[in-house]
């Protein structure tokens, strides 16, 4: 039949049009807990190339950091962050500290500077990732330093948000309820993360303007 294409064609046009109006605003999706954590490749301060998917089978913690940010300082000067990193390591987890500050912005570091800071702070991340153009930061929607993400062994994002429930600069982080620690423990015990999302606090990530 010469005309038989009319039916499928009309149907296709109508359905496409309706669906298109539904999703007119489909910009990049927000990262969600319970969904696979988006993969990325990054340069570490030690010169290695790090790929997230290479860590499948291990729990991964992402920490957005800026060594000049008062909120980050609070956690490093009190030894709170270092302690958490050691605990993660003891559980066999991978800890990636990510610096998304753009050159010229607060917290931007070269590879050497990053290594020096790790040494000085006695920190023990698996790697410090340099993300000066903010690709990974934007991919994860990282907004503050610190902004924490916990990914389980299957590569599913299980926690995102603040490091703890003590956003005030004068609050003692060692006495706070640490959401990341709780998430790590619950995941290790095979439980669901009780508080999977919180509002992150701290300095804004100093992205390339």
């Amino acid at each position: 039949m010469r005309w038989t294409w009319i039916f499928p064609a009309t149907a296709a046009v109508v359905v496409t049009g309706a669906v298109a109006t539904t999703f007119t605003m489909s910009t990049q999706a927000a990262v969600r807990v319970g969904q696979p954590a988006p993969d990325f490749t990054a340069k570490a301060s030690t010169g290695q190339t790090i790929r997230l998917r290479d860590y499948k089978g291990k729990m991964v913690i992402l920490e957005w950091t800026n060594h000049e940010c008062p909120f980050v300082k609070k956690h490093y000067q009190s030894g709170n962050m270092q302690k958490l990193q050691q605990e993660a390591k003891a559980k066999g987890a991978v800890w990636l500290s990510i610096v998304s500050s753009a050159p010229g912005q607060q917290g931007f570091v070269t590879a050497e500077q990053a290594n020096a800071i790790v040494k000085e702070q006695k920190a023990s991340p698996t790697a410090v990732l340099l993300d000066p153009d903010g690709t990974i930061g934007r991919l994860y929607g990282a907004r503050t330093t610190p902004h924490m993400f916990v990914i389980d062994k299957a590569g599913i994002l299980q926690y995102m948000g603040a490091i703890d429930d003590a956003p005030g600069l004068n609050q003692d982080p060692t006495k706070a309820n640490n959401y990341v620690r709780a998430a790590m423990q619950q995941l290790m015990a095979g439980q669901k993360v009780a508080t999977p999302t919180t509002q992150p606090y701290g300095c804004s990530v100093k992205y390339k303007p």
Binding site: T24, M25, T27, A30, R32, V33, G34, T197
Partner: peptide, 9 residues
């Protein structure tokens, strides 16, 4: 007013 959703599911 249409906005992009956040992480809250």
């Amino acid at each position: 007013l249409t906005m992009q959703r956040g992480y809250q599911d």
